[in-house]
Each structure stands twice: as C-alpha cells, then as structure tokens.
Nucleic acid binder design. Sequence first.
RNA 1: GCCCUGGUAGUAUAGUCCGGUUAGUAUACGGGCCUGUCGAGCCCGGGACCCGGGUUCAAAUCCCGGCCAGGGCGCCA
Length: 436
Amino acid sequence: MRRSPPRRSHYAIEVRPEIDNSRVSLLGWVHEVRDLGGIKFILLRDVSGICQVTIKKENLPTETLQRLEDLGAEDVVHVEGTVKNQPKARLGVEVVGEKIEILSRASRPLPYDVTGKVPAGLDTRLDYRVLDLRNPENNAIFKIADTVLAAAREFFRMNNFIEVRTPRIIATATEGGAALFEVKYFDSKAYLAQSPQLYKEELVTVFERVFEIGPFFRAEESHTRRHVSEFTSIDIEAAFLDLYGVMEILEKLIVHIHKRVVEERKKELEILNVDLNIPELPFPRYAYDDMLKELENYGMELAWGEDFGTEHLRILGEKHRGYYFITHFPTKSKPFYIQPCEDNPEISESFDLMYSWLELASGGTRISDRKLLEKRLLEQGLNVKYFEHHLKVYDYGMPIHAGWGLGFERLLMVLTNKNNIREVILFPRDKFRLVP
RNA sequence: GCCCUGGUAGUAUAGUCCGGUUAGUAUACGGGCCUGUCGAGCCCGGGACCCGGGUUCAAAUCCCGGCCAGGGCGCCA
C-alpha cells in the first residue's frame, strides 16, 4: 500500500497577514535556506510564489532538527505550522514551522543557481531548463504565455471563429520558399508542415472563419535571436473579408491580449519589470511605397520590388515604435496565393504586422479564383500538378477570403520584453539544439 | 550557409595583448560559529585552463585545425 500524499491547505501566496494565527499545511520546493544556528529560515516556493518558513530550534524535537541539518535547495518539503504576522520579516508574515517532512531530496551542488544570484548563460540555462524554469522570472514568462493563449481563444470564439487542426505531416511544400524537414513516412517521403495555409483556405468553404494555434517547422539555417526550427503560429482565415477586415481582427486581438495580460498577470509583469500599456486602435498603416520613400529620406536606397532587409527594418523600427502595419507589398515578393490588386497587379493585397523592427504577422487577401491561382503558381515556378487536391476546392464554391499568421513566440517576446526567442520557448529547437 | 567575438572550478568571471610565482574573485558545495535572516555574516576546506596538433627550454597565454557558444547577415514568422 502506498501512503497517500500529504494535503495542502494553502499556497505560498495565500500566506498573508489576513490569516494570522491560522494553521497551514504547505507543499513545495526549498528555494533558499538561511541557517543562523538557533533559527533557520526556509524560503518555500510553490507554483504560486514564495513564502518564508521559520524554524526555531527551541520549538522542535532534536530528531526533526537532525533531519533538517542538511536541508538544501530544491528539496521537496511538506511543512505544517502557524501563520504569524512578523514585522521583522520582509514579507510581513511567516509560517512558524512545527512539522517538517522532506519528501524528496535534490542533488547538490545543483548545476544551475535557481535563485539567479549567479547569472548563467542562456545555453547553460537551456541545458537545465526544468531548473531554469523554477526561477520566478522565467516562470512568469510562461504564465503570461498561458494567458495569451487563453485570451486568443476567447477572442476568436467571441468573433465566431472555429478552432481547427490541420496536418503536421504533409506530402509537398505548401509555399515553396522556406526549407522543410523531411521525414520518413512508411515507404515514402513526407515533410513537416511549415504553415497551415492551404488547409485553412480550404476550410473557409466549410466553417467560414477558422483559427489554428499550433507548432510549425522550418529547416532554415537561421542563426538569429528571432528564429527557431519549431515555432508556434496563431493562424486565421475568414470568408467574405479582405485584407482590411482581417487586419482589424488582428489589431483587436492584440489589444484584447494586452488587456487580459495586464488584468490577469500583474504580478508576473512586475517580476519581469515590464510596464505593459494597452496599444491604441487603429494601429498605424503604411504602404510599402511610403516606407520606400521614408528609407530614401534616411539615405537608404532600395529597388522597388525588393523586400526589406534587416537593416531597413531596423531603420523603420527606430521611427515607428510599437505596433504598425506595412501594406501592399510587391506581388513578386509574396507567396503565390496572395491576391494582386485589381488596378495594379504589381502590388498585392498583403500586409505585415510589425512591432518596431520585428515582424510579428503576415497576411492578406487570398486569391479565390482558380485560374488566377494556377497562373500565379506557374509564375512562381511551382508545379501545378502537386496542388491538384488544393485546386479542386476552388471548383466547389470559393468565396473571397483573407487571413494571417501571427508568430506566437514573437508576440511573447514583445509582451515580456525578451530579446531572444529561446527565452520564451520552454524547450527551443534550432540548428544547434535538439535536447532537452 | 557566411562574417565577427569568445571557450578558465557546478555556475559566472579575472588573467591571455607582452609565454615563466601556488591560475585570482564571486557564488554554489563540504566543515565550524551564530535566535531575525531576507544578496545574511565571519572562519576553514575541496574544486578549473574545450579537444587535437605545432612553435618553444617553457603554452591557459602564440600559431593551425576541429568542436561548441554568443551576436550579426542572408532566409523568414
């Protein structure tokens, strides 16, 4: 028979002056121990936060004290004691320990300092990621991430979107361009999806408005702070809307997410030292052509039709702080499924959502005419044959539609003020990291 | 893939230019003292020069190659 686990009466954060003199039962990890000889202070950490447990020699039997002699960081403990208001404690309140049980011991020395007193490099931290995540600051990032995902789903449902799931294992490249990971698929070759693009377009003919939040894969040789091999995309596609309709949805989503994070993650924002403001609607919109002129004013020439390089975006980001859209990119710089403008097919009904110099989202009106789509496939040098299944759908009644894909982790970088995307991914994957 | 910079105890660093003491410090860890710590303090202890080759009387230090890391570019979200 296994002994039943001890019961928790309160979380660490609930140890507050209001419950002075209450008996509590706490479960958690030893964050720090400060042993003064006759008195010992334990910082007990659980998912909610940290509280102080005070152990007085005079209060406890020798046997218990002996077992506590080598109590160390990250040991799992069960503490029973009484809450006491205590002006001498920084938090104003502490738990005077009466019974302490060590449920699991951590090895020592630990490979990484969870309290953050000695800084560790990102590479070391990621090697011991589970320990790293116990640091309150790193922990806060992922509590905010949880709120972002919940807020996004809430927003989409309020706006009549249906959550869908499309395949991660695909037969051919959806967009050309980005490099794909090849996987063995029984006796043939398959690829990991880099985007839900074609599937979500097909699904608007059924559900009208769909969204998907999920991982996608790019086998790029990227070596930057904002690229990884596996990332999360928040994607939507909506029938009977054009680029302006989905831009409006996007900016409202961003505002909704900000509101929820500010409401629900005050403590985490404080820990991260982030002063998050709710952006004003609508976000500024600039055409590609206007941005070219702006760059010229800074003495940076860029041939019409070329996409912005990082140096261009950094210049634009200097001037445009916060969120803004760039619209109407040259058709040739965009994927085949983007709708060219009727009055000038050289430019497209496309947009990017930027935050300063960082690209957060990309979208636009999609082509809904099969003939035009086939023409664009050919122009981009793609083989129409591979898209037969997709093209058929256009014969069954394809409404005008538009959509976008938003880089979840990039948004999280903005919200948490982190400058390396690896900071905001639990277990990041890039060309140089496949474990843990 | 290309370019720049780096690799020293568990962690983070000094020393490297200009080759030569016992490779310094902080923190973590072990031992001791300590009844109000909250970056606790004080004393003691063990613990390191990425790998391979070369130059030299002598290499952490200089040279070459490799591997790894940080950043930038390209590509992209």
